[in-house]
Design a protein around this nucleic acid. Structure first.
Lengths: 335, 335
DNA sequence: GGAAGCGATGTTAGCGATCACATCATGAGC
DNA sequence: GCTCATGATGTGATCGCTAACATCGCTTCC
């Protein structure tokens, strides 16, 4: 307790130099004699000195921390993204501070961003999949580096996003290619952009094939809602192919179909989205679309660092293409 | 860019008071006239002033940030815990900074903790389910508030933990109560304390019932390893009840049993652990054990805050009892 | 040989808050 | 009416660091 942890001047005294020289060594400044550098290094090691990030942040006006705003970090997508962001950030010497919010309304988002700002984070990543989040973001001070992930494509904000439309199109097309006349869709919440994008891709694939899209089955990402939709779909004999907006919805659908005695993939084919690690062990193994969360994290951080270094604004965007992972839940329809 | 964000003195000038008075208003100091307080509040609002956490951290020596060290924040348990910690911390005015590490060896843990220390976090929560983590922790400076979650019960470090033993015992007992002669166990990695605790509880329940525990099936939390163990178990006609160390293992087991034509729960009963949101939609719905992550998070934070405020060391520990959630994957054995 | 250049180092001034103490009314108590 | 506690406010030092400038010795070049 008593002893305060050593500061730069302590190191300087021990090494017989000025604190500024210590600072130079720490920051890899070139103009330091090799011998001096070693002496300083030794002193740092001996004292167990650790630079004070707060002091540095105070004087530079920026901490080495990146704030992340996300809603439900328990969901597989956000959780993966967060982990990937943290890994990537650590490699660049940044720490990641999370500010998870219960709801994605203006107020919550703003509050979370405020908290980050008051810690003078170097930049902010907002995993903002809903409309209301975007509005909140436009009100923010323009001078803080910001990147949104899976946000609103229509807003002039730097954006990294999984290509939901392409992924959904690929999933739908995969089912059409297998010979299905049409494909039903159990969607995510329509006010989530990724949900909307998947709906759009599904619709586009059908229209391109000259098929009128069947009615949408609206879900909310949860297995529970997938199950509810699945019960309905199971009662309609004409349904032979289902694309769900994520794997958990698919799990619910599989369960409902199973209960109704409709076999997958013999009677009905199912394709999911996300490729959760468990998807390969569903009954049957789930064909799904895999977004590359690492790539998203890397791209986001890159965009953020670019802003931090250059101070440039602009609204670049980057799209990460997902890949289809074929497993056992798709088969040609029986006639 | 150009305009630097307003500081306390700016607010003071606008409100016609000294910076110290502003500070008092901000920190809820009592000795401020109501009228002055309002003037200051108005000035804060007008300027959009936001206190600078770095400056505060510098002078007080502690930031309002709690560092969390965890390994795989993609897994359901850690992810839930992290989310819960963040929620709870936010309510107390703390931010949470994650330092996820790839491996839980000395070195990685120490590095992550170092990073947190250099930001002068107020305290650290280590989600340290393995042996090697504990060793790294004992080397740490003693003056930084620290709480471990699911760590080594034998080490003299403040610890909050889900009562793995009790949970596993309940699960095993539930199967015995249903009439099964014995219960097989697909375990987590043995070097994880939660894995070890679940093994211990399973074994204890069997021994208490006068049953010699059958050989352990070692898994690694993944559905893939559950599947592998499940294939083996499916070939042994005497197996009628399986307790898996988590729900994902159970998913793999269910799939293996299904493939082998052994019905659950008619032929074999299965109980999992974690109660992931999807567990209710497995085929069949999974009976499982639900740890209360919110309670764990709350307890951890409480312990941490107590240390922060009092500066007391000590090694209190708190155990959170999980609850059994009965669903459809358990039935009496057929004879 | 002296001005100029440069590399290595030291000195000083903040960054924006808190803390400890000083100041100054104001009203109570004798 | 004068002391004194008390409440409201201001002043100055300080936290640990970096940025900008100052200094000093040594080569380099005409």
């Amino acid at each position: 307790m008593a002893v305060r942890s050593p500061a730069m001047t302590d190191v300087a005294r021990l090494a017989g130099v000025s604190h500024q020289t210590v600072s130079r060594v720490l920051n890899g400044h070139p103009n330091v004699r090799e011998q001096t550098r070693l002496r300083v290094r030794a002193a740092i090691a001996e004292l167990g000195y650790r630079p004070n990030g707060a002091a540095r942040a105070l004087v530079t006006g920026r901490s080495q921390v990146i704030g992340v705003v996300a809603q439900n970090t328990t969901l597989y997508g956000p959780a993966s993204l967060l982990a990937a962001l943290d890994q990537t950030a650590a490699e660049e010497g940044f720490a990641v501070s999370v500010g998870s919010v219960r709801n994605l309304d203006h107020h919550s988002i703003s509050a979370a961003v405020e908290r980050h700002l008051s810690h003078r984070v170097a930049g902010i990543v907002v995993i903002a999949p809903v409309e209301s989040a975007g509005e909140a973001l436009e009100r923010l001070p323009k001078d803080v580096p910001l990147v949104t992930v899976d946000g609103d494509p229509r807003r002039p904000v730097p954006l990294v996003t999984v290509d939901q439309v392409a992924g959904a199109r690929a999933a739908t097309q995969h089912l059409l290619d297998a010979g299905h006349r049409t494909v039903w869709h159990v969607s995510g919440p329509a006010d989530w952009f990724d949900g909307a994008g998947r709906i759009e891709g599904w619709r586009a694939a059908l229209l391109a094939a000259g098929v009128e899209p069947p009615p949408l089955m609206p879900g909310d990402w949860s297995a529970a809602s997938g199950y509810r939709c699945g019960r309905l779909l199971a009662r309609m004999p004409e349904v032979t192919a289902i694309f769900t907006a994520n794997d958990h919805l698919a799990l619910g659908v599989l369960r409902a179909l199973h209960e109704s005695g409709r076999r997958v993939p013999d009677d009905i084919s199912v394709v999911g989205f996300d490729d959760v690690p468990e998807a390969a062990y569903f009954i049957p193994p789930l064909t799904t679309v895999r977004p590359d969360f690492d790539a998203v994290a890397r791209a986001s951080l890159q965009l953020l660092l670019a802003q931090i270094e250059s101070g440039t604004g602009g609204a670049p965007r980057q799209t990460i293409a997902p890949t289809l992972v074929a497993r056992g839940s798709v088969a040609p329809p029986r006639h």
